[in-house]
Amino acid sequence: MSATAINSQLRAPSFWQSTNGKKVVMAVTGCILLLFVIGHLLGNLLVFAGRARYNAYAAFLHFDDTILWIVRIVLIIAVVLHITATVQLALRNKRARPIGYSRKEAINSSYASRTMYWSGPIVLAFVIFHLLEFTAGYIHPGSQFIRGDVYHNVAAGFSVWWVSAWYIFSLCLLGLHLRHGIWSMFQSVGYNHPRHTPLLKKAALVIAALIVLGYISIPISVLAGFVK
């Protein structure tokens, strides 16, 4: 029988309803979050410049609460959209193959790309923990959270070994996530070039590695005693 059922045409899915649209949203929000991750890293590397500079940087971020909250809201929206799109796509993808293969080999994809679904949620869990620990101060094992003395909070927080280990593990996963995400966002919005994309993939690896190294240098330095 014909591939078409005559006279039964449906309204097309909207941009957001389409899988392609959601991937564009994920690319854009992912890009915003990546920029935050980079900015956050650069700011926090000031911890190596000493207590005064570091606390001054923290105070600078708070110089106007309206701007701070605008930035925070943008980030929260980005996170919510990124996650909503992911969850909806993941559910759709599960429905797309109701009966799985008895055996399936990966032939072309990278480890990072295949692990996005669980590297993402773990990073999310980490971000929540991280906010509770260093922004809100609800969880601060091993010492007293002092609002305003960021240097103290960081040094004291990371001196607990399992906090540092959890942090390093999560940051490695973030790196894995970014290693695929950084070039993938270009693909999702429509940029792929046989000469540029391989470079972009290498750049994604380098950027992801630098971000991971940059971040984990802080707890390692604390544990090693360089930052007290």
Binding site: N20, K23, R95, A106, N108, F186, Q187, S188, V189, G190
Partner: peptide, 28 residues
Amino acid sequence: FGSCTNIGECTGACPKEIPLEVISRMNR
């Protein structure tokens, strides 16, 4: 169908080796 997650299994399996570039063109 499910969504594309840009991982490239398709192009590896394609007997005509169609490049991933065509997906980005569609997205754009």
